[in-house]
Amino acid sequence: MQIGLLGALLAVYWIIQKHFIRTVYAVLVCVTCANRVYFDAFNPLGAPPEQRNADLRVFHANVLYTRSDYRPIIDTIRHLNPDFFVLQEMTPAGVRAVAGLRRAYPYQDSVWAKGPCYILVGSKTPFTVDSAARRSHRVIALTSTVRGRTMSLITVHPRTPLLPSWFEQRNRQLAFVAQKTAEIEHPAVLIGDFNVSPFSPVFRDIFRGRNLLSPCRERFGYMPTWPRFFPLAFIPIDHALTNVGFQTLAFRTLNTPGSDHRAICVDLVYR
């Protein structure tokens, strides 16, 4: 912290003295120290893990559609051994690249999300899909039986709200999945890259206002996920939320080489 403050003072001094190169070095020192403070402040150890085994583990990653090497994603999934994986910004070539996961995850479904991007879900257990939700809002809403209990998983990846029409479309999709998750009578989890942070009034209105959903990261720290390459601007836009049927045991973010997002992994227990 002290080094960062010294760097800031030197940057101001060298700006006044018009020493451009020295100013750049001082700014780099400030950024490095700020990153350290940032992660200490917003990535605490969080709530201690509860002494229970998870009933459900879900892994989610925005893989970045331009990537060609899917081995880090495959290795992470095999290491974590989730019950479900959700991969967003997949392409047809990407779906073929992770075909090796079918042995462990024989039940899969995909849906076009936007542009060249698809959502791919893999499951160890058979599931049924809400085809009406797929057609109307480009989401995957599935129901399965895991460890003897009926449960649902819903995932969506709306557009980045760069245009007014995209902003409205994103909000409609999020409102739809939030209401659907809240109304399901059995345990349900909603997960995905929502392209909105929890600081947005849109997020608060949709997920904390009209619908009784619990953010899985709530007890575990800030946990930013994007943009991974610029930590000072890091915000959480990849989310997992549950209805009253689940309780969160653990929430964490993971590095995903080749992507501009950090992945998330959530462990849940039935209530």
Rank of each mutant, 00 (worst) to 15 (best):
D267E: 10
N43R: 10
R204G: 09
I74R: 02
R147K: 14
F42K: 05
A113C: 12
N211E: 09
M90V: 07
D109L: 12
S136E: 14
T145G: 08
A47V: 00
R159P: 08
V129S: 10
F220S: 00
L162S: 15
R262N: 13
N243K: 04
Q88E: 13
D238E: 02
L101M: 09
I3T: 14
I140S: 08
S144W: 01
V156R: 01
P116R: 13
Q179G: 15
P82W: 06
R208S: 12
L249W: 01
N255T: 14
A188W: 00
P198C: 08
W226A: 12
V139M: 05
S214V: 08
L56A: 06
E89Y: 08
I191G: 02
V139C: 07
V139T: 09
S214T: 13
I235P: 06
R210Y: 13
P92M: 10
L190Q: 02
L28N: 04
T76P: 02
F127M: 05
S197E: 04
D40N: 12
R57C: 05
A233I: 13
Y70H: 10
S165F: 13
K124R: 13
C30E: 03
M90H: 04
F199Y: 15
S200L: 09
L9G: 12
R22W: 10
F251E: 01
A54M: 03
G7H: 06
A8D: 09
Q247N: 12
A240M: 04
D193K: 07
V129M: 11
F207C: 05
V27F: 08
A132H: 14
P224M: 09
I74F: 03
T125R: 13
T125Q: 15
G46R: 00
H157W: 06
V269M: 09
A61W: 01
N195V: 10
I119M: 07
P116K: 11
